[in-house]
Simulated assay, not measured.
Amino acid sequence: MVKDTKIDKTARDTHYATLRRQVRDAKRERGEIPTPDPRKDRRKETDWTPPQLAPDQVRLYGLHTVRAAIDNPERKLIKLSVTQNALVRLEIGPVDSLGFPVEIVTPQDLDKQLGPDAIHQGVMLETRPLPMRRLEALKDSPLLLVLDQVTDPHNVGAIMRTAVAFGAGAVITTMRHSPTESGVLAKSASGALEMIPYIQITNLSDALGELHKLGFFTVGLDSEGPAPLERALTGDKVALVLGSEGKGLRQKTRETVNALARLDMPGEIKSLNVSNAAAIALYATRQHLLKKTA
C-alpha cells in the first residue's frame, strides 16, 4: 500500500501550527510578546499616544529591570502593576510587606500603558527618577565612560550593562541629544541602571575639564586616532569618551580630551556599533589598570 505523503504532511503542518500557536499564546499571557489588537487593521505604533507622565515619574518594565529597581534602596517606588504569573516570577515576597501599592492587571492593561510593542513581561513599576549625581563623587573611581551625544536608548542601555560588567564607576552623558531615564533605557540595561550612576551634564567640555582636575586621563575613541588604544592609555584613572552613532566625537570634544585613540581591527570593517566599541575599549582599559596595580 502506497503511503499518502500529502495527507501526512498536512497533518504534520497542522500539528506544528497548533504547537506554535500554544507557545505564542503562553508568551502573550506572560507579557513576553505584545498582545495583538483585536481589530483587523492593527493599530500602528505611531498611532499610540502614551499616557501623560508627571515630570518626576518614570515607568519601568521587564522582570530584571523591575526586580533590580525594587531591590535598589535609592529608588522611591510609587506603584507596581503586575500580572498574576509575573508576580510569581518576580519572587519579591508577600505584597503586603512591600511598602507600596501592588495592582494585579492583565497583559492588555500594560499594553495600553506602555504601547503595543513593549516587551513588558507582565510587569510595570511606577517610580521616581534616581537621584542626581555629581562628578566630584567619582574621584575614587579608576574607570569612567563618557558618551558624546549617543542618542539611541538601546545602545546606551547596552553600554551601561557592559560598564557594570567591567567595573566602571559611572556613565556620563549630555543632557541634550542623549536619552533620559526611561523604560526603554532601563529595559535595554536589564537592571544595570540601578547598579551604576548615570550622570547627565550640561556642557561636555566643561565636564571633561573637571575630570582632568580630578586626575582622570581622558581618551577619545576615533577610528582615525593616531595610536591604538593600548598605546594611548596612561595613568591610574581613565575616562573613555565615545561619540555618537553616526558623527562620532564632536570637534570640541576631540580638542578637549587628553588623547585620541583608535581600536585596531585587522578585518575589512574598521568601525563598530558604539556599544560594541565600548565593550572592547573597557576591556582594554581594565587590563591597563590591572597592570598598574599589579
Results as ranks from 00 to 15, higher is better:
residue 232 A to G: 15
residue 229 L to D: 00
residue 198 Y to I: 03
residue 133 R to S: 11
residue 200 Q to G: 11
residue 120 H to C: 13
residue 119 I to Q: 15
residue 174 T to R: 08
residue 218 T to E: 05
residue 165 A to T: 14
residue 218 T to V: 11
residue 125 L to N: 09
residue 184 V to N: 14
residue 153 P to Y: 07
residue 129 P to K: 14
residue 204 L to K: 02
residue 194 E to S: 15
residue 169 G to M: 06
residue 168 A to H: 03
residue 152 D to G: 04
residue 141 S to F: 07
residue 187 K to G: 02
residue 158 A to N: 11
residue 220 G to A: 12
residue 168 A to I: 11
residue 136 E to G: 07
residue 232 A to T: 10
residue 171 V to Q: 00
residue 140 D to W: 07
residue 192 A to H: 09
residue 164 V to Q: 00
residue 145 L to Y: 03
residue 149 Q to A: 08
residue 144 L to K: 00
residue 213 K to W: 11
residue 183 G to E: 02
residue 150 V to W: 07
residue 166 F to L: 12
residue 234 T to V: 15
residue 153 P to A: 03
residue 211 L to M: 10
residue 216 F to K: 04
residue 149 Q to M: 05
residue 235 G to Q: 00
residue 169 G to I: 05
residue 133 R to K: 03
residue 187 K to E: 06
residue 183 G to M: 07
residue 158 A to D: 00
residue 151 T to P: 08
residue 207 A to H: 01
residue 145 L to G: 03
residue 234 T to Y: 01
residue 216 F to N: 08
residue 151 T to N: 07
residue 137 A to V: 09
residue 161 R to C: 08
residue 136 E to P: 08
residue 153 P to Q: 03
residue 189 A to T: 08
residue 222 D to N: 13
residue 129 P to T: 09
residue 129 P to D: 07
residue 171 V to W: 00
residue 215 G to C: 10
residue 159 I to D: 01
residue 147 L to G: 02
residue 134 R to A: 13
residue 149 Q to S: 03
residue 131 P to E: 14
residue 141 S to P: 06
residue 204 L to W: 02
residue 186 A to P: 04
residue 178 S to I: 13
residue 198 Y to L: 11
residue 226 P to H: 09
residue 172 I to C: 05
residue 171 V to C: 01
residue 143 L to F: 13
residue 178 S to F: 02
residue 181 E to W: 08
residue 134 R to L: 10
residue 150 V to G: 11
residue 164 V to I: 04
residue 200 Q to I: 11
residue 185 L to S: 10
residue 215 G to W: 08
residue 181 E to F: 15
residue 135 L to K: 07
residue 153 P to W: 02
residue 183 G to V: 02
residue 154 H to W: 06
residue 192 A to I: 05
residue 210 E to S: 04
residue 153 P to K: 06
residue 121 Q to S: 05
residue 185 L to F: 04
residue 123 V to C: 04
residue 149 Q to H: 12
residue 182 S to A: 13
residue 119 I to L: 15
residue 212 H to Y: 07
residue 193 L to D: 13
residue 147 L to N: 00
residue 156 V to W: 04
residue 219 V to Y: 01
residue 222 D to R: 04
residue 224 E to A: 15
residue 149 Q to T: 13
residue 181 E to L: 10
residue 172 I to S: 00
residue 184 V to G: 10
residue 155 N to T: 01
residue 202 T to S: 13
residue 124 M to N: 10
residue 157 G to F: 09
residue 199 I to C: 01
residue 203 N to H: 15
residue 225 G to I: 05
residue 168 A to S: 05
residue 184 V to D: 12
residue 120 H to I: 14
residue 182 S to W: 14
residue 178 S to E: 00
residue 183 G to L: 02
residue 179 P to W: 09
residue 209 G to S: 11
residue 147 L to D: 00
residue 220 G to S: 05
residue 122 G to S: 09
residue 152 D to F: 03
residue 162 T to H: 03
residue 189 A to R: 00
residue 152 D to K: 02
residue 181 E to A: 06
residue 128 R to M: 14
residue 165 A to G: 15
residue 217 F to T: 14
residue 210 E to R: 08
residue 194 E to L: 03
residue 225 G to F: 06
residue 124 M to C: 15
residue 164 V to F: 12
residue 194 E to G: 07
residue 235 G to T: 05
residue 225 G to W: 06
residue 131 P to L: 12
residue 219 V to R: 07
residue 192 A to V: 09
residue 127 T to A: 15
residue 226 P to R: 11
residue 211 L to D: 04
residue 158 A to K: 07
residue 194 E to T: 09
residue 217 F to D: 07
residue 155 N to M: 03
residue 160 M to Y: 03
residue 157 G to Y: 05
